[in-house]
């Protein structure tokens, strides 16, 4: 659907008032509504980043599809990676309602102009990582995404509802995988612990920098795009993960992690934020590899896109000929 037409400055204050009233009522903004340019730009940035994360997120797990330990695990992993592609497509579709094209979005990803979640710049070194990603990475994604189902932009919220339904499978399959390994040999239990040790801190980073260093949070919350601050969501995730880790029999690698009865929440340590910013800026272990792979897939797929377009055009001509003759 197309975006709203240009308006004169006189009309703009009236439209801005209507926009503010819609947000104040906790009602949704829809694609053809007038919206402030900054609201549109913030959404494009956030939804695109989210879509790119789903698409790049296929790579770390896709790495293990050919080496799955059983047909059952392989079928599960294939379905999960396919879901990530689907999530990316729901989100690109939502982002396009804001007036950006899919082609532009892809270009901005492979040129490094737009970011994706830093978690996908870490490598997957063992099959236990498939389980840990499901449990912790998808778990953190769920904690982030459930409140976004109520975000103020209609198409984004609707995409999030579809995604959250499917993420539940992702988290449970991961936890079940780890639980199965924990019932196995000492070596398998060690694999799980080693994997959790590597992913715990990057998972905490998924919520973004601490509130004091998150300049966009206040405006995003005023517009109803974000519903909770980064630190609130991180706290929630820690509190949910602790009993799950206990039940699994693994240790979370944070000596500062302890129940605070007074606050009613767990106290926990801060991730290494220097590492976070370094990974965001491109120096993570896999940044270059992830983008190179995405670029290659896009460029090597160009002939398929062109052939399909050419085929559709010849079919159309053939149909027109048939219609003309009959």
């Amino acid at each position: 659907m197309t975006v709203a037409p240009e308006v004169s400055p006189e009309q703009e204050s009236e439209l801005a008032a209507a926009f503010d009233a819609t947000i104040a009522r906790h009602d949704r903004i829809e694609p053809r509504d007038w919206m402030p340019e900054k609201y549109r730009a913030t959404l494009v940035r956030q939804i695109a980043q989210h879509a790119h994360s789903e698409i790049i997120g296929m790579q770390p797990e896709g790495n293990w599809i050919t080496r799955a330990p059983s047909l059952r695990r392989k079928a599960i992993l294939l379905a999960k990676v396919q879901d990530e592609a689907g999530h990316g497509l729901y989100l690109y579709s939502a982002c396009e309602t804001l007036g950006v094209s899919r082609q532009e979005l892809t270009e901005r990803l492979i040129s490094g102009q737009q970011k994706y979640s830093s978690i996908f710049n870490y490598p997957t070194l063992s099959y236990a990582d498939v389980g840990t990603i499901g449990w912790l990475v998808d778990g953190a994604a769920i904690a982030n995404q459930v409140p976004l189902c109520r975000t103020s932009y209609g198409p984004y919220g609707r995409s999030m509802i579809r995604i959250c339904k499917e993420e539940s499978f992702h988290q449970r399959q991961g936890y079940e995988l780890l639980a199965t390994m924990m019932r196995g040999t000492d070596e398998q239990r060690a694999m799980v612990q080693e994997s959790v040790d590597r992913f715990w801190w990057p998972a905490l980073m998924m919520f973004g920098p601490p509130d004091d260093d998150s300049p966009n949070t206040a405006q995003s919350m005023a517009w109803g795009i974000k519903r909770d601050t980064n630190d609130e969501l991180r706290q929630k995730f820690v509190d949910m993960s602790v009993p799950q880790a206990e039940r699994l029999g693994v240790t979370l690698p944070d000596p500062g992690l302890v129940w605070n009865a007074e606050r009613g929440y767990h106290d926990f340590g801060q991730p290494d934020w220097d590492e976070f910013y370094a990974v965001v800026q491109g120096s993570g272990p896999c940044n270059a590899q992830r983008i190179a792979h995405r670029r290659r897939a896009h460029e090597e797929g160009a002939w398929v896109r062109e052939a399909a377009t050419a085929f559709a055009a010849t079919q159309q001509v053939a149909t027109q000929h048939d219609e003309a003759r009959s």
Partner: peptide, 12 residues
């Protein structure tokens, strides 16, 4: 209505 997608023709 559930969303949108890109395709070259109706069948795709």
């Amino acid at each position: 209505h559930v969303g949108s997608l890109h395709a070259t023709d109706d069948e795709m």
